[in-house]
Design a protein around this nucleic acid. Sequence first.
DNA 1: CTCAATAATATGTGCAGACATATAAAAAAT
DNA 2: ATTTTTTATATGTCTGCACATATTATTGAG
Lengths: 233, 233
Amino acid sequence: MTQPVFNNWQAVQEEVVRRIHGRVWNQGDLIPNEADLAKEFGCARATVNRALQSLADSGLLDRKRKAGTRVAMFPVRKATLEIPVIRKEITDKGHTYGYAQISRKRAAAPPPIAVKMALQRGTKMLHLVCIHTADLKPYVVEERWINPDAVPAIESVDFSQLSPNEWLVKNIPYSAGDITFSAISADKHVADLLQCRIGEGLFVIDRTTRRDAQAITSVRLVFAPGYQMNTTL
Amino acid sequence: MTQPVFNNWQAVQEEVVRRIHGRVWNQGDLIPNEADLAKEFGCARATVNRALQSLADSGLLDRKRKAGTRVAMFPVRKATLEIPVIRKEITDKGHTYGYAQISRKRAAAPPPIAVKMALQRGTKMLHLVCIHTADLKPYVVEERWINPDAVPAIESVDFSQLSPNEWLVKNIPYSAGDITFSAISADKHVADLLQCRIGEGLFVIDRTTRRDAQAITSVRLVFAPGYQMNTTL
DNA sequence: CTCAATAATATGTGCAGACATATAAAAAAT
DNA sequence: ATTTTTTATATGTCTGCACATATTATTGAG
């Protein structure tokens, strides 16, 4: 009897998944080490490593040096979300993109924003509110605070035609950021802009980006009713 | 002058990012091929490959065989979301987990669900509603449809103590799924369960999982007001 | 001129071997 | 008994080489 040969990392991965699903290896079990698996599968250890590493990335395995590889107790599935530029998101859906600036001013950020951005108290920030439309219908309101210390050039940029979202993505590289997804009830201000009822449930993305330790910008995107963010796992 | 040596893939990656951020390579530019970069960096091509592949995964580069590697026009950032088991999410936050089944019945799924799950019209499904609590306060309502054809064992499972969320994760492997995030306004039913005002904006996750082509289950998770889902990028 | 066959090329991935590194377990010192 | 040091081991990753594969560019046939 000739056993099948797994000579590429995807095949090895599939076999490992098959064994986990088939309860050959149970939750929490230590699985054989890479060298043994390589021998069994008739391939190089590097190939097994690639397969197992990829499964660890997706949360199905837990690996630790010396301790070995075990089947994750809670198979925490990881979904990857693509965060596109708003204009691209709208045009990719086949709609006509529109943009308008609502307001622009300098002001101290309110405490929650200041805390998130780790700012000195009373730092003057650039505050922008604008709206993105799809086929002339409100799509999302962008309320943004920009730290002029981190982006001096910002003072001379005209955001009446180009959204800060797009300008920042194109011009200011960032090294890290955090995102929060949540829901709010529309207040009067937002309801007016999005042309929806006051109190209506709206999807919200809050994002703060940094370069090294310095906060660049913090934005709240409030989407029109019915907005959905999709992904697969 | 001795140029620095990049003898590990993270260092190569950092240097490449530095060049993109520093506009040495601009958006849309074709960058040198792996062999040339390897020579320049004084490392093996495999090391450059690892670095560039990882950057392509994160959306900063676009790569195509023969065509080469270019800096992405829209640096679509990708955020990875961890989708944990609800009980684990709550206990990890340091709260006391509680669970209760609200209802259990057999019924035909409503059309939107039936479509999402690609079911025959009128297939009888198992319908479950339950609630998860954190420190005795409502945390999330789980409304779930389960396809008994895909999970025959489901009929004999008691969900009065163990949530379908947890039972399914532990017992039914799935190969694929899709997730939608959105916001709704609380209707009376949900408002009662979550002890919130009618109309309040609530964060919602809809998830459908499949094994091969067969739909296993479709679930709507409606979170209590104030819920946030966090990640980094 | 158009379309199909062919060659060239950049990435994708495999292999064997080596060394690096984290860390669990064992041994030694206190 | 407790802490520190050492050792063993599984994963992490680099190297140099080879071949696979997708796709563009070139060439050739009609």
